[in-house]
Every structure is written in C-alpha cells, then in structure tokens.
Measured scan of single mutants.
Amino acid sequence: TVKFKYKGEEKQVDISKIKKVWRVGKMISFTYDEGGGKTGRGAVSEKDAPKELLQ
C-alpha cells in the first residue's frame, strides 16, 4: 500500500493498482486504477516511497 496526499487529502492505494511510475526530481509520481475506468494520480517523496514502487 502506498500512502500519499493529493490536493490536501490523505489517500492510499494498493501497489497492485499502480499502472505507471516515474521520477520527478526527489518525488516519485504515479498513476493508478481508481476503478470505474478512472485513472488517479499521486506522488510521494523518494524517502517515503515503498521499495516496490522504486523497482
């Protein structure tokens, strides 16, 4: 599970739902399947990112 803040809201998403991951400076950005055909997005700092996300 990845915990992150998006627009001031605390969120979390299961690693299995993450589609795409990329690095922006010291942040790790990602998109994930929100269900219902929607794609969500989020970002975590490199130090807070789970190891599975960095692979």
Rank of each mutant, 00 (worst) to 15 (best):
K38M: 10
V44I: 15
K20S: 12
M27Q: 07
E46G: 06
K3Q: 09
G36T: 07
R23L: 06
W22V: 05
M27G: 04
G40P: 02
K17Q: 14
R41C: 11
V21T: 06
K19S: 06
D14Q: 13
V13G: 00
E10S: 11
K20C: 09
E52Y: 12
Q12C: 10
K47W: 10
Y6F: 12
T31V: 10
S45W: 12
G25A: 04
E46P: 07
E46S: 09
R23C: 04
F4A: 02
K38L: 10
E46N: 07
V21W: 11
K3T: 14
D48W: 11
F4V: 03
P50C: 05
E10G: 05
Q55T: 12
L54F: 09
V21S: 06
V44Y: 02
A43H: 14
G8I: 02
R41V: 11
A43C: 13
K7I: 03
R41Y: 15
G36P: 08
D33G: 03
R41W: 14
K38N: 10
Q12N: 09
D33M: 06
K20I: 07
T31I: 15
K11L: 11
K19T: 14
R23E: 02
G25P: 02
S45I: 09
K38Q: 10
D48H: 13
G35E: 08
I18L: 07
Q12P: 02
D48R: 09
M27D: 05
D33N: 05
L53T: 01
G35P: 09
Q12H: 12
G36N: 15
V24Q: 13
L54H: 05
I28E: 00
K20N: 10
K17P: 00
V2A: 02
D14Y: 09
I28M: 03
G40V: 06
K3N: 11
G37C: 04
T31W: 09
V24Y: 11
G25T: 02
F4G: 01
W22K: 05
L53G: 01
V44R: 02
I18R: 00
K3G: 04
I18T: 02
G42A: 06
V2K: 01
E34T: 10
L53R: 01
K7P: 01
S16N: 14
I15P: 03
G35T: 06
G8D: 08
K7Q: 09
G35D: 09
S29F: 15
R23I: 10
K19P: 01
Y32N: 00
P50R: 03
K3F: 14
Q55G: 08
Y32I: 02
L54V: 10
K51P: 14
T31A: 08
